[in-house]
Write a protein that binds this DNA or RNA. Structure first.
Length: 479
RNA sequence: GGAGGCGUGGCCGAGUGGUCGAAGGCAGCAGCUUGCUAAGCUGUCGUACCCGCAAGGGUACCAUAGGUUCGAAUCCUAUCGCCUCCGCCA
């Protein structure tokens, strides 16, 4: 798995999460009734229960372990129903009794007093039932949140990247009559990449860019933004780089992948945790959380340029050289919220939007269809774009474009009301969410350096970038 | 940092302990009108869950969570968010 993939990982019920959090410090006051709030994990549960066998099969395609919680969920769902029946029966009884009391004229009389005593007991009993119900629902919710999305039918089987499928290849490796350098040596020699000083400042997996390097990073980002806004119809959006944990539940990064995130210290006074975003996907996808959109305003197409922060836990020793895998990198991200019936076409189009950037830059790349076992947690279907790196003599991921179906929408409460003519007020539906890196700027910089390097160690700047580089045509050694 | 205010259904906005899932308006939907015409009239119109073949019945939800009470949109507490004023500051 590559660093950039699975940035497609999801946020959810805004308030529920806050509530879950409170659960830990105060075990005895587990939030009652949280499950039936406006957002609906319940649909999810119903779907899982009603399609237990097919869900088991599709989750199994990601790896056998993923399907394991299903039996427990099924059993808990049964317990939940029983708890609800018991608790609602009592609630009805109590409500009737209370309504009757309201009709008693003499609030000081013996009749009223007797009724009050009886109801007091009833009310206590009801609270017990409600607690029991809430307890079961929290358990179910925990399990549901830890289950990944079902792979789409046309996603190939396979446990790891070995089974990803090459969909297409664009361009050709640039002809070089010399041994190409990798970006690390190239950039260091040109004086535009500096890993010594970044190490001193911040440790491994950071970079300092100087002069033309810094300019190129900025130029790439701006070029990408301009293309997506003016040619692909995206709306540029600037978002916070710190988000609440609730946003991370929505996209699916939490609860399972917290070890990939940088959590901000010094927020102890707050009731929630703040994290550095691992991708713009998190703030942007959650932008319309808990809103009810109209069908007319779909699709929503957003592009955001942000830094991304990743802990890269478990990647020790991998890609330690150069700036392939950094704790901090820039990315231009495209996100779409669409009607369910449009998401497949949107996924193809969005992937094309990312490819267009590579093609305009003249960078040799290929498109991979990820197999079930290699996909991110929240994704139904993912294309990775891999760019050719002459210095490594291999393709490396530079973009990951995913269709999440309604997975994130359910967790983040992203809904719209269909405007079906003549059919009255249609029920709200979940949108489908998609996103893709378009592109990871740091890796694009690497690809430009390596693919455009010349025998003399200089680097030509792609034509389309020159207007963004004050007309500079070639990067030569920094003086 | 100090002081105060607010948070109701897609939107606006009533509602300060009982019959309130919640007036009214707008938007939407259905129908009727077509000399009040970029209109009028009538009706309808929240979400989720549970039971039920269905018809239908039930429960919960007035930012969130606790609490008080026989009973909470309404009272108390905490939290979240927004707004105003003062101070400070990029």
């Amino acid at each position: 798995m590559c660093a950039l993939s699975h940035d497609g990982c999801g946020r959810g019920y805004t308030e529920r999460r806050e509530c879950r959090r409170l659960r830990e410090p105060t075990l005895d006051t587990a939030c009652v009734g949280g499950f039936t709030s406006a957002t609906n994990a319940m649909l999810d549960l119903r779907y899982v229960i009603e399609n237990l066998d097919s869900v088991r099969v599709s989750l199994g395609r990601r790896g056998a372990a993923w399907a394991a919680p299903l039996d427990e969920i099924s059993a808990l769902a049964q317990r939940r129903r029983e708890a609800i029946m018991a608790s609602e029966k009592l609630a009805k009884e109590l409500n009737d009794a209370t309504a009757a009391m309201a009709k008693i004229a003499d609030k000081k009389g013996a009749e009223f007093t007797a009724a009050r005593e009886k109801n007091r007991a009833l009310g206590d009993e009801r609270k017990q039932f409600e607690r029991a119900q809430a307890e079961v629902e929290l358990d179910i919710s925990d399990l549901l949140l830890s289950i990944p999305n079902e792979p789409a039918a046309d996603v190939p089987d396979g446990a790891d990247e070995e089974h990803n499928v090459v969909v297409k290849t664009w361009g050709a490796a640039p002809k070089m009559d010399f041994t190409p350098k990798d970006h690390h040596d190239l950039g260091t020699a040109l004086g535009i990449l500096d890993f010594e000083r970044s190490g001193r400042l911040s440790g491994p997996r950071f970079a300092v860019l100087w002069g033309a390097g810094a300019m190129l990073e900025r130029a790439l980002a701006q070029f990408m933004l301009d293309v997506h806004v003016t040619e692909h119809g995206y709306t540029e959006v600037y978002t916070p780089y710190l988000v609440k944990d609730s946003a991370l539940y929505g996209t699916g990064n939490l609860p399972k992948f917290g070890d990939q995130l940088f959590k901000i210290a010094g927020t102890d006074e707050r009731a929630y945790d703040l994290y550095l975003i691992p991708t713009a996907e998190v703030p942007v996808t959650n932008l319309h959380g808990d809103e009810l959109l109209t069908e007319a305003e779909l699709p929503k197409k957003y592009v955001a340029f942000t830094p991304c922060f990743r802990a890269e836990a478990g990647a020790a020793g991998r890609d330690t050289r150069g700036m392939i895998r950094q704790h901090q990198f820039d990315k231009v991200e495209v996100v779409q919220l669409v009607r369910p019936e449009d998401s497949e076409a949107a996924h193809e189009a969005l992937t094309r939007n990312a490819e267009t950037i590579l093609e305009k830059l003249g960078l040799h790349y290929r498109r991979m269809l990820l197999c079930a076992g290699d996909m991110g947690f929240s994704s139904k279907k993912t294309y990775d774009l891999e760019v050719w790196l002459p210095g490594q003599q291999r393709f490396r991921e530079i973009s990951s474009c995913s269709n999440f179906g309604d997975f994130q929408a359910r967790r983040a409460a992203l809904r719209y009301r269909p405007s079906e003519e003549g059919k009255g007020k249609a029920k709200p539906r979940f949108v489908h969410t998609l996103n893709g890196s378009a592109l990871a700027v740091g890796r694009t910089l690497v690809a430009v350096l390596e693919q455009y390097q010349q025998e003399d160690g200089t680097v030509l700047i792609p034509e389309v970038l020159r207007p963004y580089c004050r007309g500079l045509e070639r990067i030569t050694a920094r003086t």
